[in-house]
Amino acid sequence: MVRLTRAQQQERTRAAVLAAARAEFGERGYADAKVDRIAERAELTRGAVYSNFPSKRALYLAVLVGSIEHADAPAGSIEHADDPKTPSPSGLAEAMGAFARSWLERLPLAGDTPADGSLRLRSLAGVFDDEPGRTALAQVTRLESLLLALALESRPPHHTRCVRLAELVLTLLNGAGHLADTAPGFADPFDVARACEHLAGLDLADTWDPPHLPFVAPAQSVQERWEPPAELPDQITGRRVGFGADGVLVVLGAGRLEAAEEAVRAARPGDRITVAVVTGDPAEIGRLVRLRVGDLTGCLRRVFEPEARPGFRLVLDGHATLASAVGLPDIGDATEAAVRVQAGEIVARARGRGAAHAVATATSPDGAGT
């Protein structure tokens, strides 16, 4: 008889809990699912479930994250953009339509039960009804808009900023998803995709001029040894990345994700920008960010060629290893800090609102780049 190690046993328990939870949520939906029934399905105690997942919400989010990280591409979907047989969209309207079609593949199929349809949609209706959750959801939606906008900005005609356009596309798609969840069959997904294409013709007068940036204090010039932490997965490319090279490292709490654009827009040519997301609640808020970012970047990877995807790295610093490396003694949802690494040293740092912008624009005393 083969004896399992403690880690193997824990992994087996987690897998059993997730399988049972997927069945429970698929039959009863999030609101009516019960942790006691999940434990019974898994042939475990209630305590065993809670030792792996601290709440029903954390368990539901884990099920949704698993659905995007382990599922194969649906039949008939747009193939991976790296495949030479599938050309990347050439224009802005075509790109918006292709992204919409990829996103809309999650809509429930005929014959899906309401509960199973909600799982397929990765619906969060009724899941985050508290203020911290709603704030994090609003911020991660802003991050999604930035990721989509940067990909759209690579399409002709040249656009200096497409964030407002991306916000409009995501508003339309999420509205279609909500209707599919509450009024199945109401909207035709092909009409929704065509509507997204037509949005490309709107002039939204999108500019980048946050009023607080002129008042941000300059970054502090320092000379500190840089000890890079272990590699983490880049949520945009799906590959593990290291932190030993020169560049700007930005650490953002779940309540400050919109500041990612401040670093991206201020970056100098050739700068390597890394945004690390931290939270004091990795089981729920951390999984929310992982779910929504992974969902959207999965669509981007299927539509856009690698060079057209967002040009910065995005990592989820669940154990705060990168945050510790840049010298943050504590983290929270309002965390915003940044450092610039050059030749194995931290040469500039800032903390607080505007830190990402301050470090990305930091200059040496003679006026040259740091």
Rank of each mutant, 00 (worst) to 15 (best):
G29P: 00
L61H: 01
E284T: 11
R57P: 02
D234G: 03
A180G: 15
R57Y: 04
L143A: 00
Q10C: 12
D129C: 12
V315W: 08
S145D: 09
L146Y: 07
E40P: 01
E227T: 15
T207M: 07
L249N: 06
G117S: 01
A259I: 06
Q342R: 13
A180K: 06
I346R: 01
G367W: 04
C299T: 11
P157D: 07
P114T: 02
E224H: 04
L170N: 06
L249K: 05
F304N: 00
L300T: 09
S221R: 13
L124V: 04
E43R: 14
E262R: 12
D112P: 05
D295Y: 06
A33Q: 03
G242H: 10
L168R: 13
R301P: 03
I38P: 00
L18C: 11
V289A: 07
C196S: 08
R225D: 14
G369P: 11
D116A: 10
E262I: 09
I38H: 03
G327K: 03
G354P: 00
R268D: 05
A320R: 15
G332E: 12
V315E: 07
A360M: 07
V63Y: 01
A81L: 03
R37I: 13
D281V: 02
R225Y: 12
L296I: 05
D281K: 04
D116N: 13
P156I: 14
A81H: 02
V278S: 09
A21M: 04
Y60W: 05
P184A: 10
H159T: 12
R22S: 10
L232F: 02
D366I: 08
L124G: 06
F186M: 13
K56I: 10
D206F: 05
T207W: 15
V140E: 01
Q235S: 11
H319T: 14
R14N: 04
A205D: 10
D366K: 11
G344T: 02
